[in-house]
């Protein structure tokens, strides 16, 4: 409860800071929206040429895409400081002040900044999901809703865990670590059915950097593709495992933290 109220306060403060420069904020919302529209445009043009992708219809891909945006949007809102962790916190020494407060250090790092404009991705994704749900006349029970919520949480958790792990590298290698951007680009691979890839990439996306568990596998249940049901059942397990690994790695990093001079 205490953490929630602090989170709310962090968030309110951050919004205030961002709205102090309304022009800047509006431009960033606009560019973010333009990016989303462009990626849907790509999907649309692609399916203008081919009617289905290895047995997956346009609407089904749209659903995966929409669900992915829901998770990715929330993740993007929360991940702002993870990319700059090495520079802002380790190299500039701001991690010192994090260590002096009686709150979990990761909690503070994540919630000190938000990419507010990414709520747009979350909203767009939700609209797309609702549209496809309606269009394909997919079943909708209360259980489905609960599962959708659970899958969203798992998806966000998987993204956060992977990028927290990458950020912790900064504890050991003080130089800027440039692995986050290429990994971020790999998120796009998870937007398509893994079956279209070769075995190597399928394995990579499932068990090494489990982005397929954050977008493709969760949607198979709602799309009635029951041949993937065992993967679907594993989603919470994968999310929990990666979260635990990330937290362990993080606390290792904190213990090895060397701070800066003076």
């Amino acid at each position: 409860m205490r953490h929630l109220s602090i989170l709310g306060y962090y968030f309110a403060q951050y919004i205030k800071v961002r709205l102090a420069y309304p022009g800047d904020f509006l431009i960033s919302v606009f560019t973010s929206l333009a990016g989303t529209v462009a990626s849907f445009g790509f999907l649309y043009i692609l399916f203008h040429r081919v009617s289905s992708l290895q047995g997956w219809a346009f609407e089904e891909l749209l659903f995966i895409y929409g669900f992915n945006l829901v998770c990715l949007g929330l993740f993007n809102v929360l991940s702002m400081n993870l990319y700059e962790f090495g520079e802002r916190y380790i190299m500039e020494g701001r991690f010192d002040q994090i260590m002096l407060r009686p709150l979990h250090s990761l909690f503070q790092v994540i919630f000190e900044a938000f990419r507010i404009e990414s709520f747009q991705e979350f909203a767009t994704g939700l609209v797309v999901v609702v549209y496809v749900w309606h269009k394909l006349d997919l079943p909708l029970t209360p259980l489905d809703l609960v599962l959708f919520l659970l899958m969203t949480i798992c998806g966000v958790t998987i993204y956060l865990s992977v990028f927290v792990m990458l950020s912790t590298l900064s504890f050991w290698f003080e130089d800027r670590v440039g692995v986050s951007p290429p990994v971020f680009n790999m998120i796009a691979f998870g937007r398509y059915p893994v079956t279209i890839y070769n075995v190597f990439i399928q394995f990579l996306l499932s068990w090494i950097i489990p982005f397929a568990f954050a977008s493709f596998y969760p949607t198979t249940y709602f799309l009635q593709r029951h041949e993937f049901s065992s993967f679907f059942a594993l989603v919470p397990v994968v999310a929990a495992t990666f979260l635990v690994l990330a937290l362990i790695l993080w606390s290792r990093g904190v213990r090895g933290y060397q701070s800066t001079g003076s």
Binding site: S5, I6, Y9, Q13, K16, R94, D96, L100, L103, E112
Partner: peptide
Amino acid sequence: RTQLWWDIAVVESFQLLKRIY
């Protein structure tokens, strides 16, 4: 190095610390 949050008013920093502690 300051312990306060750079961009927000001093009293808001105090309010945040009040909640944290």
